[in-house]
Design a protein around this nucleic acid. Structure first.
Length: 195
DNA sequence: TGCCCGATTAACT
DNA sequence: GTTAATCGGGCAA
């Protein structure tokens, strides 16, 4: 099995961690898959939840790296982030899509659909498939129920504009695996090669 | 206290 | 392509 991601892995710039997460494996209670799409959010970024300073909701972002920041989106969905950079930087990487590899029957049942391509292709969808909720906000990423493994082999990573935001829309801080059919939205022409 | 709106998704036309 | 669902955070008053 691949090497587990250490806490030091997360204690770097979000723009280093984000592309390095593409191809890594995320499991939650033994269910999950390969990370194929993420977005970076830096505390100086107007689109980041931490941009306006600490609040009750974003408190975990202001803590040490290597922890999960989970928030509710549109009053309906849950979204999972990994806190990065040195403590206090309040920066994180949003996990946007997985290529399902482990526990597909369970994920199909939780999602109420069979199409493998749609099980985890979006931040809200993957949290529903893995059953991640606010109850898991602040949990360490190097302990159960989380398990993270570094990618093996090489992966072609591309970047482009982030999705669903209205501020700093031009920043190319969405990272994904080139050609993956499991991303929430294709990286069009204009996607830049990262590796 | 009240109001606006969002790091979304699915079901429409 | 458009829109309803659904609710807490953040800010103005």
């Amino acid at each position: 099995m691949a090497q587990r991601l250490s806490r030091a892995f997360f204690g770097r710039s979000v723009h280093e961690v984000a592309p390095d997460l593409i191809g890594a494996t995320l499991l939650f209670d033994g269910v999950g898959g390969r990370i194929v799409e993420v977005e970076a959010y830096h505390h100086t970024d107007p689109a980041a939840h931490s941009y306006r300073g600490p609040t009750e909701r974003n408190a975990v972002m202001f803590g040490p790296p290597g922890y999960a920041y989970v928030y509710r989106s549109y009053g309906i969905h849950w979204c999972l982030n990994f806190v990065c950079e040195p403590e206090g930087s309040a920066s994180a990487v949003l996990i946007r899509a997985l290529e399902p590899t482990v526990g597909l029957p369970l994920m199909r049942r939780r999602r109420g659909m069979t199409d493998e391509r749609l099980l985890c292709s979006g931040p809200g969808r993957l949290c529903q498939a893995l059953r991640i909720t606010a109850a898991h906000n602040g949990l360490a990423l190097d302990r159960p129920p989380f398990a993270l493994f570094a990618r093996t082999g090489t992966v072609e990573v591309v970047s482009g504009p982030r999705i669903g935001i209205t501020k700093a829309v031009e920043k190319p801080w969405r990272y994904g695996e080139k050609g993956s059919r499991f991303v929430s939205k294709p990286f069009g022409r204009g996607a830049r090669p990262v590796t």
